[in-house]
């Protein structure tokens, strides 16, 4: 259900707001104020506080309070200790994003061009995983990948596969879970941009002696680029911060950075290090997004 808002409706395809229709006067400000105040108090202010907390004296605690000492070493120490976990998080998120793209593109393509009257039903099927709880549906991979489960039993009966094959509690399980959970975020934007494409363009490419492969690479793919960019970001960003999949499907050696941050906050009470890690994560993601969007050459993200 989470993606209902991303469902492409005819409304999304209409040009952005026209300026001539804007009414002047105080009403605009009055309508904006309540929501803006909420976001200022509970999004902007917290972000500033987080940045400040990352420079606190690391010996502070809930009982003794925290002191601002511009302790930049929090960052070097946090990175020295947790860099491998950081790398692992981005690696898993990247792998999950690639899997989502490989699975999601054909699916979106089939819905946009091949589904005919089944289009709406297939779209509902894409968002159906959202109809049940994130944690409960992730748990079901525990069943699917279990040592006694159908998949492992079938695979290990094959001659080329070792008999003691394990899938659960491996990086494979974590990436499978991540890809499964964020796949709809890839499919919906891809579908939205493919659906706008005029299929006659492909016919034209064919008439001009482009092979199907060439037509796909030079017509379909460039037109789908906004969807690819939006989809990969919508998949990568939440996957990098997620720790539900690694906790439920992984093992202690597959821990991701989100888990470390929440443990430092809630169990160790180490606000300074946890904040430094969160800020680092945010900065890295913003930088990656900027570089990526520039390279992919599209600016309409929302």
């Amino acid at each position: 259900m989470t993606a209902l808002g991303h469902l492409p409706t005819p409304a999304n395809t209409v040009a952005p707001e026209r300026d001539e229709g804007h009414r002047r006067g105080p009403a605009g400000y009055l309508l904006m104020i309540p929501g803006t105040v909420w976001l200022a108090l509970f999004f902007v202010l917290p972000t500033v506080t987080l940045a400040a907390s990352s420079l606190y004296d690391p010996s502070g605690s809930l009982l003794n309070g925290y002191q601002m000492t511009w302790h930049w070493q929090n960052y070097t120490e946090a990175l020295r200790e947790y860099a491998p976990i950081f790398l692992r998080s981005f690696l898993y998120a990247f792998a999950a994003t690639v899997v989502c793209l490989l699975l999601g593109f054909p699916l979106a393509y089939a819905i946009a061009f091949k589904a005919g009257r089944w289009k709406n039903l297939m779209l509902v099927a894409v968002i159906a995983p959202f109809f049940t709880s994130f944690l409960v549906r992730t748990l079901s991979w525990k069943f699917l990948l279990s040592d006694n489960g159908f998949i492992v039993q079938t695979l290990s009966s094959l001659p080329a596969v070792p008999d003691d094959l394990r899938l659960l509690a491996t990086p494979f399980a974590v990436i499978t879970g991540l890809a499964y959970n964020f796949l709809p975020f890839m499919v919906l934007p891809l579908y939205a941009s493919l659906e706008k494409m005029d299929p006659r363009l492909l016919e034209a490419a064919g008439d001009l002696y482009a092979s199907p492969v060439n037509g796909f690479l030079r017509v379909t793919l460039p037109l789908a680029m906004p969807g690819v960019v939006a989809g990969t970001l919508l998949t990568f960003i939440p996957a990098a911060g997620d720790f539900i999949n690694d906790e439920l499907l992984g093992n202690p050696r597959t821990r991701m950075i989100g888990n470390t941050i929440q443990q430092l906050f809630l169990q160790a009470g180490d606000v300074a290090t946890a904040s430094a890690l969160s800020v680092t994560m945010m900065v890295v993601i913003v930088l990656m997004v900027l570089v990526y969007v520039r390279k992919a050459g599209t600016e309409d993200l929302v």
Binding site: P46, P238, G241, G258, S278, M282
Partner: peptide, 10 residues
């Protein structure tokens, strides 16, 4: 656009 963990931590 922010990861949930960062929103929650903030």
């Amino acid at each position: 656009a922010s990861p949930e963990i960062v929103l929650g931590a903030s």
